[in-house]
Simulated assay, not measured.
Amino acid sequence: MVGTNLKAETMKLMELRSAMELEMNAIIESLCSPGGPGLSGNLLDSEGFPREDVDIMRVRANRQRLAVLRNDHKDVTEKISQNIQVLHSARLASGPSQDSGNLTSSSSSNFIATTTPSAMDVDIVSKPFALVDEITEASPAAEDGVQLGDQVVKFGDVESGDNLVQRLAAEAQRNQGRAISVVVMRQGTLVNLSVTPRAWEGRGLLGCHFRIYDGRLHH
């Protein structure tokens, strides 16, 4: 009964996280639309007066909501990770399940539900090590298909392990101007991307921010 309840709770958390990601993407799209202020652009004009071309109150509300969603998304992701580890440990202890359903997931809280929550098995298929928690419009990452909320499973030759900050930075620098194979988990589904680190008008070679699960990294 405990396992069944935990599975149901985990599925609800998955649905909540997906809803958060959709809302975050909508806010990002709104803030970064043509002529928009962006995620952190100045709301004052060159003379120090409030900009007249944007709805300042709405922008501030959207930015505040995005910050709240990012924190909540992190908490939900960590809770899902805890649940899936408990479920996986219980499965190993009890042996193969007789349920006909299947729930594929990683030990870092990523799932692919292929049936109803009441009949699930648990298997580890990947281990994301970073979360895209900020991305700039028209950046190399955005143009190459990276989205807010993507969880990085593989970035070129880099997978989970030690010294991720240094390894990711080196991989981007080493492949500047060349396509890198990137695998991300997006709303429970593995997505293969081809991302090319390159110089652009903004900072870094990608224009997105990765939150390493044990640290922070800018690109």
Results as ranks from 00 to 15, higher is better:
residue 2 V to E: 13
residue 120 M to K: 09
residue 187 Q to S: 00
residue 124 I to E: 14
residue 165 V to S: 15
residue 140 P to K: 03
residue 202 G to F: 02
residue 180 I to M: 15
residue 21 E to Y: 13
residue 173 Q to W: 08
residue 107 S to D: 09
residue 92 L to N: 14
residue 83 N to W: 02
residue 106 S to V: 03
residue 84 I to V: 15
residue 123 D to C: 06
residue 155 F to M: 10
residue 171 E to A: 01
residue 35 G to S: 05
residue 154 K to Y: 05
residue 115 T to G: 15
residue 60 R to S: 06
residue 147 Q to V: 03
residue 166 Q to H: 05
residue 80 I to S: 01
residue 90 A to S: 10
residue 181 S to W: 03
residue 142 A to T: 01
residue 135 I to C: 05
residue 45 D to Y: 15
residue 111 F to I: 10
residue 147 Q to D: 12
residue 131 L to W: 15
residue 200 W to V: 01
residue 84 I to R: 10
residue 193 L to N: 10
residue 195 V to G: 01
residue 31 L to E: 02
residue 80 I to M: 10
residue 155 F to W: 15
residue 32 C to Y: 10
residue 75 D to Q: 14
residue 32 C to H: 12
residue 136 T to K: 07
residue 56 I to N: 04
residue 136 T to C: 10
residue 50 P to R: 13
residue 112 I to Q: 11
residue 38 G to V: 00
residue 58 R to E: 13
residue 78 E to T: 03
residue 41 G to Q: 01
residue 133 D to A: 03
residue 197 P to I: 05
residue 205 L to P: 08
residue 40 S to R: 10
residue 18 S to D: 15
residue 188 G to D: 06
residue 137 E to F: 10
residue 183 V to H: 06
residue 66 L to G: 08
residue 16 L to S: 05
residue 133 D to I: 05
residue 172 A to G: 04
residue 41 G to V: 00
residue 102 N to Q: 12
residue 211 R to S: 04
residue 6 L to G: 04
residue 51 R to P: 06
residue 176 Q to G: 07
residue 209 H to W: 11
residue 149 G to A: 09
residue 120 M to H: 08
residue 135 I to R: 07
residue 17 R to P: 02
residue 120 M to N: 11
residue 180 I to S: 09
residue 55 D to I: 08
residue 10 T to K: 00
residue 88 H to S: 14
residue 101 G to Y: 03
residue 192 N to D: 15
residue 87 L to Y: 01
residue 217 L to Y: 11
residue 193 L to G: 03
